[in-house]
Simulated assay, not measured.
Amino acid sequence: MPRIVDHDQRRAELTEAVWSLIREQGLAGVTIRNLSQRSGWSSGAIRHYLPNREAILAFAAGQIGERARQRIHAVPVTGDQVQDFLNCLEVTLPLDGEGRVWLEVWLVFVGAAVSDQDFADAEGVLYRDLNAVFVEALGQFDRRGWLPAHTPGAAATEIHALLDGLSVHLLLHQITREQARVTLRAAVSRMVVGPAASP
């Protein structure tokens, strides 16, 4: 009987191996040979999934967005819509070990995107995906009268910019996790007035 291959598990293994190379050696350290050594896979097994270096880097960039989506969807729903929104925003920050890993990789790709359009396109996909999540949530607040001074799109842009800035500051150890949380909560409280404004 043929062995059943868990492709999701294989993908997760490759993600962790590629990301560890990027965090330690930057994008220049990502080669099929290095990935083979890091993952314990043969070069042929890697090429079965990712045939060349460009495919490996595209995969690594795409997995950043996938990890963000997984973390957001795993946030428990409390019934307090503003608090639930804040909780979703917080899991996109490097406030724990897992969050720090994928955001360190994100920062490497952001740096590369300045001069490489392919990486800029990959970062753009992540930005658009997250922005769409923010716009949808803020649109619900707007329909309830909880977003009096912003359109959902403008509010999403402002929050997204704040998240990016806080992420960089955290990764560079310039602020504490608590400072990041307080700053984010203050920004959302100024923007979203909450149930008291509901008609």
Score class of each variant (00 low, 15 high):
G153E: 15
A113S: 15
V168Q: 07
W146F: 09
V125Q: 10
I159A: 04
Q63D: 03
V114S: 15
A149G: 01
L163Y: 08
A180D: 09
A17G: 10
G62R: 07
L21T: 13
S39W: 05
D84C: 05
A68H: 06
T176S: 13
R144I: 02
E158T: 07
L93Y: 00
H73T: 13
V5Q: 09
L147M: 06
N52C: 11
V77M: 06
A58H: 13
L89D: 06
E123D: 12
W19I: 09
A154W: 02
A58C: 12
L86G: 01
L171T: 05
P94R: 00
G111P: 13
G99V: 09
F59A: 02
G62T: 06
V75H: 07
E98G: 05
R181H: 08
G165Y: 06
V30Q: 03
A196M: 03
T176R: 02
R38F: 11
N131F: 01
V188Y: 04
V77F: 04
A186W: 02
P199V: 14
S36D: 12
T183P: 01
L57F: 12
E66Y: 04
G79D: 03
T176W: 07
V188F: 03
R38Y: 10
D96N: 14
V193A: 11
G165E: 11
S115E: 15
V75I: 03
G40C: 12
L95M: 08
S167K: 05
V18R: 03
R190D: 09
R190L: 07
I72F: 05
M1V: 09
H150K: 00
R181V: 07
G165R: 05
V82R: 14
P2M: 06
D96P: 08
V133I: 02
N87G: 02
A68N: 06
S42V: 10
Q37T: 13
L89A: 11
